[in-house]
Design a protein around this nucleic acid. Sequence first.
DNA 1: GCCAACGTTGGC
DNA 2: GCCAACGTTGGC
Length: 139
Amino acid sequence: MAYWLFKSEPDSWSWEQQKAAGAKGTEWTGVRNYQARNNMRAMKLGDRGFFYHSNEGKQIVGIVEVVTLAHPDSTSDNPTWECVDLKAVEDMPKPVTLAAAKENAKLSKMALTSNSRLSVQPVTDEEWAEVCRMGGLKG
DNA sequence: GCCAACGTTGGC
DNA sequence: GCCAACGTTGGC
């Protein structure tokens, strides 16, 4: 299984809204960046991701799961843009802030800290385990 | 609200 | 195909 990180501004799409979408999940729309789209194309059913609030909060607040493979983004006329569907799995018992991630040497190579502009990022097994530990989850 | 970093666009 | 100009993102 692969791990990912999804960024969203809570003003446009928040963790609360994601949870409200329930078990069938909802499209992760609005990605208009090739690198981010390619990451979504590489996703498989059951892959997991962190849900990160940018701007406001600047912290990882929950875990999501990929419930459909990449398909055309229904909010775009251009079939170039694709997205997956995500469902909320669980809250981070203790949200992991960007500041905390930056201070952790094990996370120094994480895309979140080194390429903050990328909205859908790969996460390594080691990074996943470390963030889960910081957040109070087993992983 | 500012601005640095990055990605995209478009003229040549 | 290069690169300057521009727009957007997101941390501060």
